[in-house]
Each structure stands twice: as C-alpha cells, then as structure tokens.
C-alpha cells in the first residue's frame, strides 16, 4: 500500500455518548484540535450501555485499542453511571486477561460535554502507547 502516514497509526474505536462526550468530540473538530484519523467513534446513549462483547469484538477483529469516553458524573441517566461503566471496564479487562490479551488496550476516561482538549490528549497518548506496543509486537 502507498505509504500514507495514516495507515501506521493504531486504530482506535471510541465509544462516545450521545449527549455528553460526543458533543465534546464534535467540538474538538470545531476547534480544529487534531488527533489521528484512525480514531473512530460509535456513539451510544450512555457509557454504561456498552456490552463487553462489543469491546471484545472490536479488539479481536483488529482494533488496536478501545477508548470509552464515559459520561462520568455528567450522565443524564443518573449517578450510577460511573460505577456501572467501571464495572463494564473491569469485567472486560478480566476477559482480556483470560484470553492473554493486553488489558491496557482498553481505556476509559470521563469526557464532559466541553472536554474537547482532554479528549484529544487522551486519544493521542493512547495512540502513542498502542503505537509503541505495535512496534514491539512487530519486532517480536
């Protein structure tokens, strides 16, 4: 394939939330805050609606990492969101360990509706981490 700089960046799937973190990701675009174009989002209503099997599916099918842009305490559906999302992450990480996959390929952070800059920082550093891992794995 022609050596576009794009294709080397790790592919990251972001689960964003329709009312809170997705607007922040939109605003990152509006503010022209750049991040790798290999970051894709699938918006869900709430971060505690993400099934571990979706995350597993993404990682098994070839995504280098999955990032949950969680509602945090801003969740319009209630305070229980933080603990519930935490539970999903914990459970999925366990599944990853069981399968011998790196649990650090799943990352979560609360992204509020104006947290555009934190979002970009998070995905950039995540991409950097995954990129390094990728290199190491490629060498091995």
């Amino acid at each position: 394939m022609a050596g576009g700089k794009v294709n080397n960046s790790p592919k990251i799937l972001v689960f964003s939330t329709e009312k809170i973190s997705d607007p922040a990701i939109d605003m990152a675009g509006l503010l022209k805050l750049h991040y790798p174009p290999t970051v894709y989002t699938i918006p869900v209503p709430c971060s505690s609606a993400i099934k571990p099997r979706w995350i597993m599916h993404a990682l098994e099918q070839g995504f280098d990492g999955v990032f949950i842009a969680a509602d945090g305490t801003d969740c319009p559906y209630g305070e229980s969101c933080t603990t519930k999302t935490g539970e999903i992450v914990r459970e999925t990480m366990e599944q990853l360990k069981e399968k011998g996959m790196d649990p650090a390929r799943l990352k979560m952070a609360a992204i509020c509706s104006v947290c555009s800059e934190p979002f970009v920082k998070h995905v950039k550093s995540f991409a950097e981490y995954l990129g390094k891992e990728k290199e190491v794995n490629a060498v091995e």
Partner: peptide, 14 residues
C-alpha cells in the same frame, strides 16, 4: 464534518 474534515484538516488522505 465535526469528526472528520474539521478534526483532520491537517491530513487530507487520512
């Protein structure tokens, strides 16, 4: 737009 052309205005191929 928000999540592609504006976010990646630095990288047209991407």
């Amino acid at each position: 737009r928000e999540q592609v052309s504006w976010a990646h205005s630095d990288n047209k191929t991407g």
